[in-house]
Amino acid sequence: MTLSWEGEDEDARAARRAAAQKAALQAGRTGEPLRLGNEFSEVRVSRMETRNGSRLLVGHGLTSTGTGVPEAVLRAISVDTIARLCLDVVKAGGTLTDLPEKDLRELPDLGGSFNNDTAWRHEMARLG
């Protein structure tokens, strides 16, 4: 199966730029990567020093930032989860669509710290 899409060339250029940026980040790696995993997968998380401070680089190619380690890790987990869900929908023959503005407006604003704190406690509990 071959995939193609509108903007494919632009995405390819962006991917090449991102790869160059990743290589530059990896040059700033400090220490050994932290390995997190379970029986299904393993992710390596490395600390990078940049001109704007420390960043986390997750071994499967995602660079995540945050105001601290918990926020950066939660952002990486969110991106990975959303990507997996999207892939499952497409594999099942579904079509991805944006939520209508009306539905977005109806979502409650629980505040970032409530969501981040709750999610971080959940992830820490999962690790045991």
Rank of each mutant, 00 (worst) to 15 (best):
E10S: 08
D11T: 08
A12E: 11
A12P: 00
R13F: 00
A15C: 07
A15I: 09
R16D: 13
R17P: 00
A19D: 14
A19G: 10
A20I: 02
A20W: 00
Q21P: 00
Q21M: 11
K22I: 13
K22Q: 06
K22V: 11
A23P: 06
A24Q: 06
A24S: 13
Q26A: 04
Q26N: 09
A27T: 11
A27H: 11
G28E: 02
G28P: 07
G31H: 09
G31W: 13
G31P: 06
G31C: 04
P33I: 05
P33Y: 14
P33Q: 07
L34C: 11
L34T: 14
L34I: 11
L34F: 08
R35Y: 09
R35K: 10
G37H: 02
G37A: 06
N38L: 02
N38V: 06
E39P: 01
F40R: 10
F40C: 14
S41E: 12
S41F: 11
E42T: 15
E42I: 13
E42G: 08
V43G: 03
R44L: 15
V45E: 01
S46K: 10
S46W: 09
M48H: 08
M48K: 07
E49M: 12
E49W: 08
E49H: 13
T50G: 12
N52S: 14
N52R: 04
N52W: 05
N52K: 04
N52E: 14
G53P: 09
G53E: 04
S54Y: 02
R55Q: 06
R55L: 15
R55K: 06
L56R: 13
L57F: 03
L57S: 00
L57H: 11
V58E: 05
G61C: 05
T63S: 12
T63D: 10
T63K: 00
S64L: 09
S64Y: 04
T65L: 09
G66R: 08
T67R: 05
G68R: 14
G68C: 15
V69K: 12
V69I: 12
E71C: 12
A72Y: 03
V73N: 03
V73L: 13
V73G: 05
R75D: 12
I77W: 15
V79Q: 06
V79Y: 08
V79M: 02
D80G: 09
T81P: 07
I82H: 08
A83N: 05
R84I: 04
L85K: 06
C86D: 04
L87T: 04
V89H: 01
V89P: 03
V89A: 00
V89S: 00
V90E: 12
K91S: 02
K91H: 02
K91Q: 08
K91L: 01
A92H: 00
A92E: 05
G93H: 15
G93M: 09
T95K: 05
T95I: 01
T95A: 02
L96F: 14
L96T: 00
L96N: 09
T97A: 02
T97P: 03
D98F: 03
L99W: 09
